[in-house]
Amino acid sequence: MELICPAGTPAAFREAVDAGADAVYCGFRDETNARNFPGLNFSRDELKAAIAYARQHGTMTFVAINTFMRAGREKLWHEAVDDAVRLGADAVILADFGLMAYTAERYPDQRLHVSVQASAANADAVNFLVETFRAKRVVLPRILTIPDIARLARQIRCEIEVFVFGGLCVMAEGRCSLSSYATGKSPNMNGVCSPASHVRYREDGRELVSELGDYTINRFPAGEAAGYPTLCKGRFNVADERGYAFEDPVSLDVMDHVDLLREAGVSALKIEGRQRGKAYVAEVVSVMRRALAANAADRPALISRLRLLSEGQRTTSGAYEKRWR
């Protein structure tokens, strides 16, 4: 199985390549990709240099152009595809059907991957994209169990890529409107979930309070590990109880199930984290590379090194292993 690794900057890209990534995914410095955070991402020249570096080391480069086009501004997304193809991207990762159509028509030989943002999670949806746009791979949302993935793999005619480590989006990606509800901006349209422009942290006594727009997301008591200020991982008062309504502030880790994923027909394992620093990328990619080469019995010890890098300093197997409340 391929190891697909994140890079938000050229420095992180080189770290991912050096640490043993089979492919590195990244995006342009604009709203065409779902990690459109300030100071992050690649100019055209930076992507050109990154692809050259990756090729020297036998690593592939995937370019995520995975937000949804806005009517009247399609040119921005079309140019992103044009430039990714021209610069030699090994694959483009797309979510918008219109952009898939543009790519399939203009660049029939370009390898096209279906982004998790496309929310293609059943055989009919995936096969439609394979037949219509010649998609070669689908990145599945983090809402399926491993048996679900195995069933799907038997019914579709393309490769499967799944997230195995990093930030855990618990929603049907591409269809989640929580960030949009709180801030007016979403990963789907603007490339930002819980945008930093709407985030505030403040100390209240011994508590750390995180706020998103007009909403208090969490109050972390002294000594409790903190998390990102996303609504899906907020601690709320519901009836008489205070707790996490959707999910705790945790990260995904399904490396304990990597053999099951292989048996299920998964072709590629994806690490989330384009918004993380190069130190994170270097550490996670090198540990994951070693874990994939290790015996199943040795993997937990290797992966446990990464827990403290994770949101809330905890990890979960999420929906892959259906123990969800």
Binding site: A11, L208, F220, A222, G223, E224, A225, A226, G227, Q275, R276, G277, K278, A279, Y280, E283, L308, L309, S310, E311, G312, Q313
Partner: peptide, 13 residues
């Protein structure tokens, strides 16, 4: 220097 991950240090408080 980018030798530590900012998010991880933030999570740890």
């Amino acid at each position: 220097e980018g030798r530590l991950d900012g998010d991880a240090v933030f999570f740890s408080r």
